[in-house]
Design a protein around this nucleic acid. Structure first.
Length: 581
RNA sequence: GCACCGGUAGCUCAGUUGGAUAGAGCACCUGACUUCGAAUCAGGUGGUCGGGGGUUCGAAUCCCUCCCGGUGCGCCA
């Protein structure tokens, strides 16, 4: 049961009646009619803007129109009062019985309460992380990883058929220099000293790769022909790097369904194929690009080159597909990659980019529109930067010096669950501050702890009830006499639980998992508040050994709070804790 | 110079896609445990929503313009 949806249905029914009575004309645009939980309790439990939204179309004064609704709702058994307020709001106060049904629904439906099947089994490809396999994942990647994974969870829960995909940039000059660095480490491991000055990837992680190379090949590679040798080392190094990336991800709770390799796209001729496809569509031409002003383009060479007409699809400038030496630009395999995604016929394609790739959004959207002849639109979500703080000071990171905070560091110091929650406490397109000290704190300052603590407290209440030989199965609790729940704090909490379906679908359809983080925090807050009330007034304790029926009713409410918290945590990929240690 | 993302309480941030008196957390002040976990709770102080125009019954939200911060801007990926 979705309380807001029920009220919406009631309103729509009244609209039908008013149409039949000729008070409003039929066929009015109903799309912006909203049912909301007002910020101020003085405006009732729920409110709607229906009269204001329709007033212009119906050519009637909003308050006058609202009056008709009030009349129509006069005999509705679940509505306590309806009032016209302000410019024409309808403010509803619903019977307690109406709200109590929310608790019953939660107990009946369990973890699937609030889930709306908007996916209809449609297929969606979510591409995220896609970090170059040249080094370990760092904090920035981690944010994208968590965001992408939870978005995928949300879509799965809503009935989409989701593919989690990682695009591996295993071709190109960065990989070549990675292989050269690995070769240096390999020689080092063999006891051949080589100066460090040519080493472009100085991080320690390559030392291990050097050692592994020695284990695998002994000193055989030294005498090999250089290009053959580098090819071997490249292959070996990329495979090892990917293994450790996969390990890091899985320790963060993420398992990809698919890895697509850039070099495979080359090998399979997909790059040629996709560019030819664009060529056939007349979207590749020879032209001269204007030099961008500002920036660092001192050595700009004006030349005629092959360009993709991305401006036709909303991009700011047309994009080159080949370098001056005739090889493909970085853009070309990306075209091939998205061409490949389109060939796999997903209903929806979502890319998660890091802030540093924001400049690629419009050109990639252009590619997808062009290749699909306008039938598909690429959805891109950006994850902004993460600023790390430790002991009140920002943590400086330098990729060049090989000193940066890795996902592994975070996992060791903070742990998977806290990382996931804290990285979702911010809107994806806003920068995020991550404070190491707070992340491991066991206080209210740390929202993960606070939510987990609420769940743990509920666990111990239920445990206590069991010790009193109370049957706490959901099926039995759902038959509790909920009319015994009456105080304002309890009702407020139940109304909050009734918002869960709205929060969940909004988080899904707008790709905004952070809404769930805030919701869980607020719900936990209401629970902690309820528990404290019992300290001041013992009549308000959940467990009342003088009143079994009331106890069971309160247990039903407490358990439904827990179910909602647990379903939120499940979507976040976080394990609920039964007790805090 | 251009593009994208941000600018909301002292700090970190929400804000129901145009709604009512703009909300949380932290910090600061005051209070609450002999029994369900005080690792918690209750109350208070705190705002020209970056500035200025516009659109309308109504704007933090939409449009224009300017200011500030971040990121990016062919032959790196």
């Amino acid at each position: 049961m979705d309380a807001l949806a029920i009220l919406r249905d009631k309103i729509m029914a009244v609209l039908g009646t008013l149409e039949r009575q000729g008070i409003i004309s039929s066929g009015l645009d109903r799309s912006s009619i909203a049912i909301e939980t007002p910020k101020d309790g003085a405006f009732g439990d729920l409110s709607s803007n229906v009269a204001m939204v329709l007033s212009k179309q119906a050519k009637r004064n909003p308050r006058e129109l609202a009056k008709y609704f009030v009349d129509q709702f006069a005999n509705d058994s679940s509505i306590e009062t309806v009032e016209v307020a302000g410019p024409g709001f309808l403010n509803f106060k619903l019977k307690n019985d109406f709200w109590n049904k929310v608790v019953v629904s939660i107990l009946d439906e369990g973890i699937s309460f609030g889930v709306k099947q908007v996916g209809n089994n449609k297929s969606v490809n979510v591409e995220f992380v896609s970090a170059n396999p040249t080094g370990p994942l760092h904090v920035g990647h981690t944010r994208g990883a968590v965001f992408g994974d939870v978005l995928a969870n949300l879509l799965e829960v809503a009935g989409y058929n989701v593919t989690r995909e990682y695009y591996v940039n295993d071709a190109g000059s960065q990989i070549d220099s990675l292989a050269r660095s690995a070769f240096l480490r390999y020689q080092e491991s063999l006891g051949i000293f080589i100066g460090d000055e040519q080493n472009e990837y100085p991080g320690d992680y390559l030392k291990k790769i050097g050692d592994s190379l020695k284990e695998e090949y002994g000193d055989l590679l030294i005498s090999e022909d250089e290009s053959f040798r580098l090819k071997k080392i490249k292959h070996f190094t990329v495979a090892k790097m990917l293994d450790s990336i996969k390990k890091d991800l899985s320790d963060l709770g993420i398992v990809m369904d698919s890895f697509v390799s850039e070099s495979d796209l080359y090998a399979e001729g997909k790059v040629e194929e996709s560019i030819n496809h664009l060529r056939d569509l007349g979207l590749i031409y020879k032209g001269v690009l204007a030099k961008p002003k500002g920036g660092s383009n001192q050595d700009w060479l004006e030349r005629e080159q092959e360009l993709f007409k991305s401006t036709l699809f909303g991009d700011d400038t047309d994009r080159p597909i080949k370098k001056v030496d005739g090889s493909w630009t970085y853009f070309a395999p990306d075209i091939a990659y998205h061409y490949d995604k389109l060939c796999r016929e997903y209903d929806e394609i979502i890319d998660i980019f890091g802030a540093d790739h924001s400049g690629y959004t419009s050109r990639m959207k252009a590619v997808v529109r062009a290749l699909s002849k306008g039938e598909k639109d690429l959805t891109v979500r950006l994850c902004q930067l993460v600023k790390l703080y430790k002991n009140g000071k920002p943590v400086k990171m330098s990729k060049r010096a090989g000193s940066y905070v890795t996902l592994r560091d975070l996992l060791d110091e903070v742990g998977k669950d806290a990382i996931r929650f804290l990285l979702l406490m911010r809107k994806n397109d806003a920068p995020l501050e991550f404070d190491f000290n707070k992340a491991i704190e066991q206080t209210r300052e740390n929202p993960v702890f606070y939510v987990q603590y609420a769940n743990a407290r509920i666990c111990s209440i239920i445990k206590r009830a069991k010790e009193e030989n109370i049957d706490v199965s959901d099926s039995l609790l759902s038959k509790a006499d909920l009319s015994l729940l009456g105080n304002e704090n309890e009702l407020q909490t139940i109304r909050k639980l009734a918002e869960w379906p709205t929060i969940l679908t909004k988080a899904t359809t707008r790709c905004e998992p952070h809404r769930i983080a805030f919701y869980l925090f607020e719900t936990a807050q209401l629970f902690h508040s309820l528990q404290s009330l019992g300290k001041i007034n013992h009549d308000l304790k959940f467990l009342r050994n003088d009143d079994l029926k009331l106890t069971v009713a309160r247990l039903a409410m407490v358990r439904s709070i827990q179910l909602v918290i647990q379903s939120g945590l499940k979507i976040f990929g976080i394990k609920p804790m039964d007790e805090m240690l």
